[in-house]
Design a protein around this nucleic acid. Sequence first.
RNA 1: GAUUCGUUAGCUCAGCUGGUAGAGCACAUCCCUUUUAAGGAUGGGGUCCUGGGUUCGAACCCCAGACGAAUCACCA
Length: 567
Amino acid sequence: MQLSEQENIRRESLKKLKAYGIEPFPQHLYPVEDYAKNLIENFSEDKTVCIAGRLMRRKIQGKASFGTIQDSSGKIQVYFNRDEICNGEDKSLYNDVFKKWLDLGDIIGIRGSLFKTRVGEISILVKEFTLLSKSLKPLPLPKTDKEGNTYDAFTDPELRYRQRYVDLIVNSHVKETFIKRTQIINSMRDFFNSKGYHEVETPILQPIPGGAAARPFITHHNALDTPLYLRIANELYLKRLIVGGFDGVYEFAKDFRNEGMDRTHNPEFTVLEIYVAYKDYNWMMDFTESMIENTALKVFGTTEFTVGENTISFKTPFKRQSMRDAILEHTQLDIDGKSEQELRNWCLDNNIEVDKTMGKGKLIDEIFGEKCEGNYIQPTFIKDYPIEMSPLCKKHRENPELTERFELMVNGKELANAYTELNDPIDQRERFQEQLKLSEKGDDEAMFIDQDFLRSLEYGMPPTSGMGIGIDRLVMLLTNQSSIQEVLLFPQMKPEKWDSGPDLEAFKNCGIPEEWLEHVYNAGFNSVEDLKEAKKTAIHQKLNGFRKKNKLDIPALQLEDIENWSV
RNA sequence: GAUUCGUUAGCUCAGCUGGUAGAGCACAUCCCUUUUAAGGAUGGGGUCCUGGGUUCGAACCCCAGACGAAUCACCA
């Protein structure tokens, strides 16, 4: 790996610091007492402070310098004065250590006192500074002017996601989003706990990937010599716990689905699922809307959110509409009593793609997805889904073709999904068998039969309502982010390709002299194969050209030298 | 998977009709004792994504590929 000029300069500074007697990566703790944000908010003249953070700006003006220290709470200006730092005749601590060998990005500790500059900016007069960690790579440092315009912003999404640590250092709003994310989850957790519901952990490695229709990741357990799947949902485990006697259980779960990736899909994502005994889906609608409203108010102090071009209100109550009415409203089609063939014909007439594997439920789902879903900007519960597409949901109390299921639509997308849970084990077994038929018909999302889950239902599960909500998408809505990658600290990316560096040993084995090994690589020959492919004369010219350009203090190569190499 | 766009200095980006690779910041050296996006001066820094082709000459045109982004498709 070739270092840039700036990286070399920093490595030189590192050597000089060591030679001077300063350990650039010391072991000792640093007794931090203060934080930038707090010092600025509670300014008190001449207060003695001790702070640590990253040096983000440095402006040297002779015997005085200004800088900015960024810690976990924010930024504060620091003022270095030569004679404050160096009491005696020896001014090297300022002239050399601070001015020459410290770099932007270094982590330092500072003791000093608070004051305001002539311009009125709260600053720390540095009395003593300690290098706590040297930074060997230059940071991309954006600048912001008085009007708030940012220059040289570090915006390339690929670099930002791959090097989130850099993104977090230089783009303060990014950190803000992730702080909000944690607060949202905490507030939901508090809400559930205040109702007495129990947070649990269920298996991520599952022998049967159940509870949803999705393509799973598959792995293998060596000792058991059996396949295991990364969970696509935790529903069936949580319901087993309701059978076991918990009244309310919930889990913030990472689920994994082996499907496409785009700005709303990441292979692993976070879902909250909650199951409450003795409740139904009507109760769950009340519960869900009040949970969301509560989170909005606790974390953001408002129920009104700007999402892209829309303003969305999470003020309760949310609108409720049946699937039949939704489709009727947006297409004038009444799905009630229609046969599979009638629905399929309607789809064909209305440019909705269908195929043979689609049953009645799937067709209705397609119609809703194509013609209705996008219209629901304000939070709306769409309820009473066709039975075929809800194999874990109890039949509707008034219409056996439907189930007691709702989805919460916000900003034209599904946010949450909930049922009055199916607890009749005989019905459940039949529904699984229906799924099996669908799967034989070619639906690769149809579910497996989980025998143990059926056994648990046979012992009796109280009437229960369950709800799942996509945490990543909820955070996107509440923080006005348009891609899931912006709310995941480390979104999945294609593996990065790394230059493994020169195989100098291989060069050496070809008879290339010691003093040339590194230069052969730096001149552009990455491997012995490269040398073999090139003409001897070309190698000769290229290497001597490299020698001349870099003013290398080694003898020029003769063509015979290269002919003697075994390349 | 399809389409479109992109890849030039550490960062953000210019680069005309094909004719000597540029700017700002960052970096280095020097000057400056309270600055405010960058005080002043000077300087170093490039595999123009890769490989072919066209051409007297390619960052630029053509072909192939790599990587990325956006849109679409897929996606309970």
